[in-house]
Design a protein around this nucleic acid. Structure first.
Lengths: 212, 212
DNA sequence: GTTATTTATTTAACGTCGTTAATGTTTGTG
DNA sequence: CACAAACATTAACGACGTTAAATAAATAAC
């Protein structure tokens, strides 16, 4: 069996796993259920994933790739730093809120479960997702469209964390009195940008839309 | 059996559950293991918690109460808006990073699991935690120490989400190139405050410490 | 082309889990 | 004492993760 065939089988198993997950949630994901979905024996996937943890880790990497794709597609065709940043945050929140389960899966991780930190596949997917944001900022700075008080990597960490914090709380039903991620993510991005931009480079129009 | 005794037994069970969780992680938490820790039969806790999900929901409420206490204790004795806000964020990050498992448990929730949204106990604990932050901001505004572009509730949502986003990514091992929550949370808070404060009310000293 | 050997898959089995039903055991009441 | 209610324990069921044995399929050697 060639390497490509093995990889194809892995993808098939992940397809089935994702289907079960999206249909009936994480607690429904079991080797027996996935196998039934795929039409094979419940022990067959063990040749391709050593454990359930490994299977779920690969599934989480896939969720990160999905988010990365959504952001990249939203960026395609957008020009100018402000427009690209806006498109990025819009894509992020649209993806997250249209598939809240899949989004939550990305960050469904408890410390100490160190397989997540040993899986190169997951780590790379995480890094590449964050990198989309970092690139947009770095390009904006390179083009002279924005000047920051901090480096692009720190800035993208802040934006990424801010957006993730909002969406994560929204999905967890944490918001009170009508606040929602839809309104708060742009507010968060605007406030953060205002906070880390050099005064001179900030357009006056940023001074709006903070009341949500 | 009086109501107080029932509540006391619930607390004992939660003590045992938390002990198992902190010792061996979430996957080790089972009725059988908790019962062994407590010295009772594995079926006894069912009189106090209808299901494992209910047990874990109560455990998560406890984690929120723990965070609320840590923040309130840090606030005690601190006066002045800036000092209180700094103490708050320091307490938040100290608690989260000193007990990352417990912190992650607070937000360990997948959408669709709607027991979390029906548990008054958990909802109240969440609300009260967020409320600590809201109060600090509202008091600061009432005392005229700060003027914001948005209302205190929106502001506390932003700060809470920002800090949570940073810490959550840190715990998930999401940061690259030496960024850490220790440095980024203060940066996040500072940037957000700079972003949502009316220009006039901002001290010039806030213009520091963004490079991390 | 037939056999031998490796590879891929399936079935059987073990221990653990969540949960419920049946069975004890205590405790207060007449 | 009897008796009923409240509580705790054990037994049992089906599903799970995982491994080992058994089987089928594919490939290699002659």
């Amino acid at each position: 069996m060639t390497e490509a065939q093995v990889q194809a089988r892995r993808e098939q198993i992940l397809d089935a796993t994702m289907a079960v997950f999206e249909a009936d949630g994480l607690e429904a994901v079991s080797f027996r259920r996935v196998a039934a979905q795929l039409g094979c024996s419940y022990s067959a996937p063990y040749r391709y994933f050593a454990s359930k943890e490994e299977l779920l880790t690969a599934l989480r990497a896939r969720a990160f790739r999905w988010m990365e794709q959504a952001m990249l597609e939203a960026l395609a065709g957008e020009t100018g730093f402000r427009a690209r940043l806006a498109a990025l945050s819009r894509a992020f929140i649209d993806a997250a809120l249209s598939h809240p389960q899949r989004y939550a899966l990305m960050f469904f991780e408890l410390p100490g479960t160190d397989l997540a930190q040993r899986s190169l596949e997951l780590l790379a997917a995480k890094r590449d997702s964050l990198n989309v944001c970092t690139q947009v900022i770095a390009e904006g700075e390179a083009a002279g469209e924005v000047v920051l008080d901090c480096d692009p990597l720190t800035a993208s960490h802040l934006l990424w964390a801010g957006a993730h914090g909002i969406v994560s709380l929204q999905i967890a039903g944490q918001f009170v009195m009508g606040r929602s991620a839809d309104a708060l993510v742009p507010t968060m991005i605007a406030a953060l940008m205002r906070g880390i931009e050099r005064e001179a480079s900030r357009p006056v129009t940023d001074r709006q839309g903070l009341n949500g």
